[in-house]
Amino acid sequence: MYPDARLKTECDPVELPLDDATRAIARDLLDTMDSFPGCVGIAAPQIGALVRIVAIDVSGHKKAVSDHGRRVLVNPVIVSRGAERVKMREGCLSIPDFTGNVTRAESIVVEAVGLDGAPQRLECDAYEARVVLHELDHLDGLLFLDRVQHARDVFPRKRYQ
């Protein structure tokens, strides 16, 4: 949780091939994601691991168009972004004080290594693209507050739900 300094730290790439320690972090990410109802994504620094791993799962979400299901992305890189940009109100487990309007690409292509060690290339759009971009920001020490452009785009909330 913010203000934990690990949330503001750039994470290190994972050394390949994957070792047991990395797989343990990935499992912990998935378990943590499962422990929060409705959680659609989580990044390693959110559980205190400063490595470039995120987990996403937008399965069945009503705003999802592309839906790659439950995925662990190791060393993910955005290789392209569509020109269209959309504003959406985001919240985050790690900064429960606020929600905020953030403009992000509507579609992206992300390349990563999967939990099985195989390269993956995901074409994501709409809600899934938003989740991936939000989680990848965590790997660079960026919270959605760093993407907001105006105080009027931020809304305090009483507690995370």
Binding site: P3, F98, V148, Q149, H150, A151, F155, P156, R159
Partner: peptide, 18 residues
Amino acid sequence: NDFGSRLGADHTFAMWFN
């Protein structure tokens, strides 16, 4: 040109200067 802040329930103070 513009400045605003938000104070969260957990006492995070966030501000944006344009």
